[in-house]
């Protein structure tokens, strides 16, 4: 894949007031969306909640939403990102590799761009991705702790896009889709 075709994949699977929904957006290194997929909202009944208990949420998130989303995506990104660390293992199991959870932090900037700082046992690290921002917290799945191999791509993309910003746009996109479907 040449330089112009590099892409990141962003995954969200959320629950709001008993309704589960997921979305995937693949963007290029400018943050321009190349593919956007979302699922119908899923609202389990009270009976299903009682019968399946805690397993229900896990099943919905991983087997129903995540699996269908990943099947639908046609562009394979260089790195998958999620916000919730709980999604790291299921994403890896579904073949979405390499994957990292990525978060904004309130830390002061590290000394120079590209500097990393380990965050202890969880495997997380802080990365100073650009010259004027707080470092990002990156967490790999337990099975694949090699984050450093991905740093060149992250630093390259951070020059032209905000690495965490697509999550905000996906949230807005889901709101828009929901509004449009209510009106339809």
């Amino acid at each position: 894949m040449d330089k112009g075709n590099r892409a990141f994949g962003y995954v969200i699977v959320e629950e709001d007031k008993g309704v589960f929904q997921g979305a995937v957006m693949v963007t290029d290194f400018r943050g321009i969306p190349l593919d956007f997929r979302y699922t119908d909202p899923v609202r389990p009944t009270r009976l299903e909640r009682v019968l399946y208990g805690e397993a229900l949420e896990l099943y919905l998130r991983e087997e129903i939403l995540l699996k269908n989303l990943l099947k639908a995506v046609e562009i394979r990104p260089q790195i998958w990102f999620c916000r919730s660390r709980d999604l790291l293992a299921p994403l890896t199991e579904q073949g979405a590799r390499p994957v990292l959870s990525i978060e904004m932090t309130g830390h002061g900037p590290l000394e120079k761009v590209g500097e990393i700082q380990s965050q202890g046992e969880g495997g997380s690290l802080l990365l100073q991705a650009d010259p004027v921002s707080a470092p990002l917290r990156l967490t790999p799945p337990e099975e694949d702790r090699d984050v450093e191999g991905l740093l060149p791509l992250l630093l390259e993309a951070a020059k032209t896009m905000e690495l965490v910003e697509p999550f905000t746009r996906m949230r807005k996109a889901l709101e828009i889709v929901g509004d449009e479907e209510k009106r339809a």
């Binding site: 995937v24 593919d35 997929r37 979302y38 119908d40 299903e48 919905l60």
Partner: peptide
């Protein structure tokens, strides 16, 4: 339970 139906949940594009 609607799990079977959910299994076929379409991912929209």
């Amino acid at each position: 339970a609607r799990f079977l139906a959910w299994k076929r949940l379409p991912a929209r594009t």
